[in-house]
Design a protein around this nucleic acid. Structure first.
Lengths: 136, 136
DNA sequence: GCGTTTTTGACAATCGTTCTCATTTTCAGA
DNA sequence: TCTGAAAATGAGAACGATTGTCAAAAACGC
């Protein structure tokens, strides 16, 4: 396993590099993209380590993971708390949206069916104003 | 591409076999599982064809596709109309749930941000009563 | 410093899915 | 019913993202 818990978590150059990068870039990026960005910056970090670090961050809830219908998973540093995403199908522009009503609805529905320990994923896809305009 | 549109769509033994199977099995299954089931029935259908057929059915909206966090996509023939799924993390038991309020909320939020042509995916994960009991 | 423990990273392996392309099947029209 | 063009099939190769392996390197308490 890669996410030591009761044990020590060590600070390494590579982990800092990934975290720093995530705090500087906008929007969602794949592990491979992030790896490429690091290389361009001259940071020498292995792809495996990027994957491991992203996974650890995701497990810790520090970053968001999204799995768009047709591809690889995308990662993003985002605000604390639970929220969802409104993503443009064409350009990827993303807006964070909160829906307290949805949260409680999901919990209620799950409870009605006897499900416990409930979580959910919700993503909204659409075409943003700019991309819609470019289409005619 | 594999989904002829203005052109003719032909009826084949393989397509019928996949469609029939889907109408008989319960719950979600991966392409590979469905392929294995067909083989057990003595139907000779290639894995490639199963994938192609499932994709065509999904494009046509005749079946549901779900991408659970950690694995391959799952397919399921399900009732008409838009709905979501409540899935047990442990045993996979699935309940279809409808949430008109969520639909309109999603559309409204998207519209507020200038997004058009909106769709969304929502999945609720939890532990069902039976599995929760078995855990203590 | 020292030694233990974690972390790293190059590379191989895995796994789901898609591509290739020669062969087979479908089906409209003769 | 026969024929031929177009569509569909399928075995295997190819692909691409992710994960495993394991020896070498780095981190940190003492």
């Amino acid at each position: 396993m890669n996410a030591p818990q009761g044990t020590a978590a060590r600070n390494t150059r590579q982990r800092s590099a990934v975290a720093t990068l995530l705090s500087q870039v906008e929007g969602f990026h794949s592990a491979q993209e992030l790896h490429a960005m690091l290389r361009e910056r001259g940071e020498r970090v292995g792809l495996t380590t990027v994957y491991r670090t992203l996974q650890a961050l995701a497990d810790a809830g520090d970053i968001d993971v999204m799995r768009p219908p047709g591809g690889e998973q995308l990662f993003r540093r985002c605000s604390d708390g639970h929220h969802h995403h409104l993503v443009c199908r064409t350009c990827g522009r993303t807006v964070e949206v909160a829906g307290p009503a949805v949260e409680s609805w999901a919990d209620r529905v799950a409870a009605q069916h006897g499900y416990v320990d409930v979580s959910h994923t919700l993503e909204i896809f659409g075409t943003c104003r700019g991309c819609a305009a470019n289409r005619g």
